[in-house]
Design a protein around this nucleic acid. Structure first.
Length: 596
RNA sequence: GGUCCCGUAGCUCAGCUGGAUAGAGCACAGGUUUUCUAAACCUGCGGUCCUUGGUUCGAUUCCAAGCGGGAUCACCA
């Protein structure tokens, strides 16, 4: 079936060719603005040079041509260089009929042109609990995965757990020294938070040591290198890479605490993974790659013993890929991880890394190195870079404790959700279980929508003093609208009203026409958000649809409508709207309730 | 200092590959419920789209410079 936009593009192409002999012209179509009459608008300024005619004239000629050739088009009007074109009402009604008959949900089916995409997100460090920045990462990654699936791709969601390295040793060391054998069970502290406590503890001691050394006359840089704590941590890392038994045992124990904690947070957030990688496994592959690269002369050994790559020709710097003491750095692991993935999934067409934009440079370097090493798939690697979440005071810093903790924030969302729900008192007949479910759905809806409605590329502000809204341009507003529709549908069912449109029916009003167009345009929004890896496109689109629906809801009654044909049409329309709202929200990882 | 990103209403954000009189939400002022859920709807208030040039029939959008903010340039991750 050809859709509205395709019909217009084809007709206009034909018109340009037949009237002016033009081909390969850009066809600039946009939605007609509210103030004007029409469905879609063609800008005709573009063709003035080739045709040597005024934009109004061109509009008239193209308008006449396409209307005469295409029965789906009703009429047009011209305002300067804008040709506003209207489809017939029966065209839109037919469209609605067909989508409903096809049980259309706005997603593309998995198809042969679809790619196989590995999408990495979350990627936590196991030395501290998750914070709001990680929440953005998790929601973004999960949503983009859903959106890509809805565009007909196969997506493998993966998590690379950063479970080794100097930062982990810091927590371990502090626990060893000051922990008095504390465990999550003995303290009743969630495992990731307990480990995080010792990460902060380490930093305190370390800072103090630095200060003492500075007072003794060392420079700050020297002091940072010579502080006893950091030397101990480095020793521990060496022992770890050598497989020291005690260190390994401690490492496994503390990591297991963290994993238990993360699992709880992931479950609450509703995110999941198809495959989990651990850097403790991939860093070894990384080291092998470095050795091979050394032989291939992609890397070289400096006098100080470190192994490096010179990227100054690319406008970048000289980069260390393996430390002088033989232990691996961040990028060593990433080399190994990349290789392992393409080995595990030989059919991979793309690998997406969901990582904050503070690491733009790192990924630029990583991808260039992979290319220099000769991996053909290097060019399929893509850094999905997103902006930081900032507080009014600036960036969040784990070590300094200026973070919005993920678990705390989630609890606050649920608390607000609970309060609001109780105040509004619309939950009669809900069981306790249903009520809890609803509270979670709404709290998560508010948080997820708040984060996903912002363009991922941009940094975003979060002020902990101002709680996340439940009114206006928010998740709960959209969820509420869905519940409203479902309420009407339930009542219609109770009254045994049928949901079928008479095929010849086309007596619709302006808002109904607009709503059908939104249903139609959803797939374009899904497509665009997929191409740009941007859930905000879907989020904002669904909001527009929902806002229009609420106006419609306010102005027109459905169950009280006496004309049965109109009533049935309206029921079909709103049911499809509910479907699109649910589909769109699903792409954001947000559930929509039947009642609220 | 080099590289990169950003600058739209009091606040938080939309504004698609250049197109009509720049839009929402929050906040503020007011109105709407005997009518399908008022977490809603409607009205009002609010803008040198950071500045200055350039390209263009047309620039918030593209280019250049400047100003302001941020990130990064680690043998941290």
């Amino acid at each position: 079936m050809t859709n509205a936009i395709q019909i217009l593009e084809q007709s206009i192409t034909e018109a340009l060719h037949s009237i002016y002999g033009l081909s390969n012209q850009k066809i600039l179509l946009q939605k007609t603005k509210k103030e004007f009459d029409g469905d879609y608008t063609l800008t005709t300024f573009n063709y003035t040079k080739e045709t040597k005619k005024k934009p109004e004239e061109i509009g008239q000629e193209i308008g006449d041509y396409i209307i005469s050739k295409n029965p789906s088009l009703k009429d047009f009007n011209i305002v300067k260089g804008f040709l506003n074109i209207s489809f017939t009402t029966s065209f839109w009604c037919n469209y609605l009929n067909e989508t409903v008959a096809a049980k259309y949900n706005g997603y593309k089916k998995l198809n042969s042109t679809g790619k196989t995409i590995l999408l990495e997100y979350s990627s936590p460090n196991t030395n501290k609990p998750l914070h709001l920045g990680h929440i953005r990462n998790n929601l973004l990654g999960f949503s983009v995965a859903e959106i890509l699936k809805a565009n007909g791709h196969t997506v493998i969601k993966t998590n690379i757990v950063n479970d080794r390295g100097i930062h982990i040793c810091k927590s371990m060391l502090a626990w060893q020294k000051f922990g008095n054998g504390e465990t999550p069970e003995s303290t009743d502290i969630k495992g990731d938070h307990l480990v995080g406590k010792y990460y902060v503890e380490f930093d305190k001691v370390y800072k103090k040591e630095i200060q003492e050394l500075v007072e003794k006359g060392l420079s700050k840089e020297e002091a940072e290198k010579k502080a006893p704590s950091i030397i101990e941590a480095q020793d521990m890392l060496k022992k770890w890479e050598l497989g020291d038994k005690d260190v390994m045992t401690l490492w496994q124990t503390m990591n297991s605490w963290v994993y238990k904690g993360f699992d709880v947070t992931y479950k609450t957030l509703g995110v999941d993974f198809d495959k989990i990688y651990y850097e403790s496994q991939t860093y070894i592959i990384g080291k092998e790659i470095v050795n091979e690269g050394l032989k291939k002369k992609v890397f070289y050994k400096k006098e100080d013993g470190s192994i490096r790559i010179d990227l100054t020709a690319e406008g970048l710097d000289e980069k260390v890929v393996l430390r002088a003491d033989g232990t691996s750095v961040y990028i060593t692991q990433d080399l190994g991880t990349a290789l392992l993935r393409f080995k595990d999934y030989p059919n991979l067409n793309q690998a997406i890394y969901t990582v904050g934009n503070e690491q733009d440079y790192h990924f630029k370097v990583l991808f260039i190195i992979l290319e220099k090493l000769g991996y053909a798939w290097a060019k399929e690697c893509y850094h999905l870079s997103y902006g930081m979440v900032e507080l009014p005071e600036g960036k969040m810093k784990s070590r300094e404790g200026t973070v919005v903790d993920a678990d705390e924030l989630l609890d606050e969302m649920f608390e607000t959700s609970k309060q609001t729900t109780q105040e509004l008192g619309k939950v009669e007949g809900f069981s306790n279980e249903e009520l809890n479910e609803l509270i979670k759905t709404i709290g998560l809806g508010a948080l997820k929508y708040f984060i996903l409605k912002v363009d991922p590329k941009k940094k975003m502000m979060f002020d902990p003093k101002e709680s996340i809204d439940f009114n206006g341009h928010t998740g709960p507003f959209i969820q509420y609208t869905h519940a409203r529709i479902k309420s009407i549908i339930r009542k219609a069912n109770e009254q045994n009203i049928s949901f079928e449109i008479n095929k010849s029916f086309n007596d619709i009003n302006e808002l109904e026409r607009e709503l059908i167009k939104y249903v139609f345009e959803f797939e374009q929004a899904v497509e665009e958000s997929g191409k740009t890896y941007n859930p905000a496109v879907v989020a904002n689109f669904i909001y527009e649809l929902t806002k229009t629906f609420n106006r419609y809801y306010h102005e027109h009654s459905i169950l009280k409508e006496e004309n049965k044909k109109i009533q049935q049409f309206r029921l079909v329309l709103i049911k499809q709207c509910a479907q699109i709202i649910a589909s769109g929200m699903h792409l954001l990882g947000i559930n929509v309730p039947e009642k609220m």
